[in-house]
Design a protein around this nucleic acid. Structure first.
Lengths: 131, 131
DNA sequence: GCCATCGTCAACCGGTTGGTTGAATAAATT
DNA sequence: AATTTATTCAACCAACCGGTTGACGATGGC
């Protein structure tokens, strides 16, 4: 049943080292744009660098960051370095965030959250249940 | 219909500045652990710092990073700074990642991805459709 | 063989990060 | 009033980040 998704159960906590590099890689707009372009198919290093007004060397560094984070795979074809999206780490990050999904859904979104903010200032709260 | 979720449509591209700070904040295991603790309810700065062998000043900096990323709200009660999770930016990040969801689902997961990797080395691929 | 092209590497630079220490602020306790 | 408790602030540090430049290696076209 579970298939590939079963990998993610209990993977969230243990793969913390991966999360460091993945979230760090995603924390830069240039790299996010590169991933967006790679969602359209394979791209060479030069193609990925083209939208930006940075040197090829700088783009090369960004691509290496994405690569060590496992977000892309590189295949050298002659003198071209062809990059391809690897969605695995994105899925891991998505899965990690999903743990918090209940906080922005199920009667905690929109107006209700604002009301809760007002509420928290008053004495009613007994104590947050300990983790 | 969409309700609070409709906010996120077309928010992904424009709120890029937020994504920078949010993903950066998530790129640190200490801060992720703090968020996990905050998922259990309100925590003071001291309580958040307790699991780590760092100074309170260092923890205070981490908390400020989470705060400017919008991931937590702080409320000063007497001499205690009580922190509370704000799920909004987490939802934004989750939404951003969801754009790539099709890459790890729908016949691109598990074995099929491996086969695709083998496949890409051969001439069959005509050209990735642009964007 | 020659030259242009694609990409990396190494060195450097200013800014940021995560950590420390020590002093400062402010509120609760005595 | 004196002290303890909770937290921030300022200064400092080594490490890292994103960018540049210039040199280098390898491939492909002529």
């Amino acid at each position: 049943m579970a298939g590939a998704l079963s990998i993610f159960n209990n993977m969230v906590e243990y793969e913390a080292p991966q999360l460091n590099t993945v979230f760090h890689a995603l924390g830069d707009a240039t790299r996010r744009r590169m991933l967006r372009d790679l969602a359209g198919g394979e791209r060479t290093v030069g193609q990925l660098a083209e939208p930006f007004s940075i040197t090829l060397a700088a783009a090369s560094k960004h691509i290496k960051v994405l690569e060590v984070a496992g977000l892309i795979r590189r295949e050298v074809r002659g003198r071209l370095h062809v990059c391809r999206l690897d969605p695995g780490p994105l899925a891991t990050a998505h899965e990690w965030l999903s743990v918090y999904e209940r906080f922005w859904t199920s009667r905690l979104d929109g107006l209700e959250r604002l009301l809760r903010e007002e509420d928290a200032a008053k004495p009613s709260h007994p104590k947050g249940d300990d983790q």
